[in-house]
Design a protein around this nucleic acid. Structure first.
Lengths: 208, 208
DNA sequence: GTCTATAGTTAGATAGAC
DNA sequence: GTCTATCTAACTATAGAC
């Protein structure tokens, strides 16, 4: 494997990633990938990968945000539960937002390969998530009536939901809401605030 | 259009829906649809639909949960904001959970057709969602510092995130969490409670 | 390692008998 | 409306010259 071949390999993966995201897996042909990667003919691809599925697997592995995500889950801290949660979401959501391409690839994996590659991603990430969760639960102000599983699912749900509404918000269909647009970090801050404090103020000023 | 042809048409749509969900759009062939619908040959399909894209569009339209969703958004009420929110989520989430098939079809639409059909769905649903939101905002205990757009997005995010973690929870990769399983309605109740009250108890017993 | 050429298969769609 | 038969085009993958 010389330096030339590895840069060719990278060109293939970059081209394939773009095409898979735009068109899906089955709708993207080996010929399209070859041409986008600078080849005249399909056959060149088979010098680097055994087949189409292997290209997709390599693309997904390459785009997985392990490098950015795992250190955050390992190291995020805070003086209070609120502080920790804010630091977590303010770190994780921008990471995932910059990798919406990875999210799209995961969706393809769920449809075309029954989520096999996604499962392997989850198995590598969840232990780190659980470590973060135990630090969060050690704070006394966390409501004792909430089970850890439910807190974990709520956090993950908000992250996923935020990313999806981010995609949906870019479609023209949602341009007709009778509200002025909210820009930048305000979205994230509002969501964090709701997750931590809720959207209501209890009449007694006391929660539950 | 006799009764026979319309039942044939239904058979085609049911067969196509299953195949599209399992395999995606491009990976599902007209021949597969024809056989699953009881035809010996492909040509039979073209007596009912001009082409493959038209079959997919008809499938999506047929599976869209307008009938169950719109009345809920129109009519849901409550004595307090908490009551209204609980009633809303407890009605909407089971509806969507029973229609996870629709969610999968939407994902296909996002990949294969740039979300064109999803946009049309959103345009029909969002006005009803906004109507519900204005009733919610009329309650005095809703935190005045939260903008309506952010509350709306938080609600939608939680619904979407809940549905996705529902799918992810069914994969074997998540069977190894060091927690006992939570069953049934407890998931939903916990999520609603967090959305309304947050996951922390403020030290002063006062929000923000 | 990259090319030309092509094998072998399958795709969506159609013509015409019945 | 459903069938048999078939068209044209595209697909993944490979063999072999260079």
């Amino acid at each position: 494997m010389s330096e030339e071949t590895s840069s060719r390999r990278d060109a293939i993966l970059d081209a394939a990633a773009q095409l898979f995201q735009r068109q899906g897996y089955s709708a993207t042909s080996m010929r399209q990938i070859a041409r986008a990667a600078g080849y005249e003919a399909v056959a060149g691809l088979y010098n680097h990968f055994p087949g189409k599925e292997d290209i997709f697997a390599a693309v997904l592995e390459r785009r997985a945000p392990y490098d950015a995500l795992l250190p955050v889950l390992e190291n995020v801290t805070g003086d209070t539960a609120e502080d920790l949660l804010q630091n977590l979401l303010r770190a994780v959501i921008p990471i995932m937002r910059e990798r919406l391409d990875f999210l799209q690839l995961i969706l393809i994996d769920l449809q075309e390969f029954d989520g096999r590659l996604f499962s392997s991603f989850l198995q590598q990430v969840t232990p780190h998530f659980v470590g973060m969760l135990s630090r969060l639960l050690s704070f006394p102000e966390i409501r004792p009536d909430l089970k850890p599983q439910i807190i974990l699912r709520a956090i993950v749900s908000v992250i996923i939901g935020y990313l999806f509404t981010e995609i949906a918000a870019s479609t023209p269909a949602l341009a007709h809401l009778p509200f002025p647009p909210v820009v930048g970090e305000a979205w994230l801050e509002g969501l964090v605030s709701i997750l931590i404090h809720g959207m209501t103020v209890s009449p007694e000023g006391k929660v539950k």
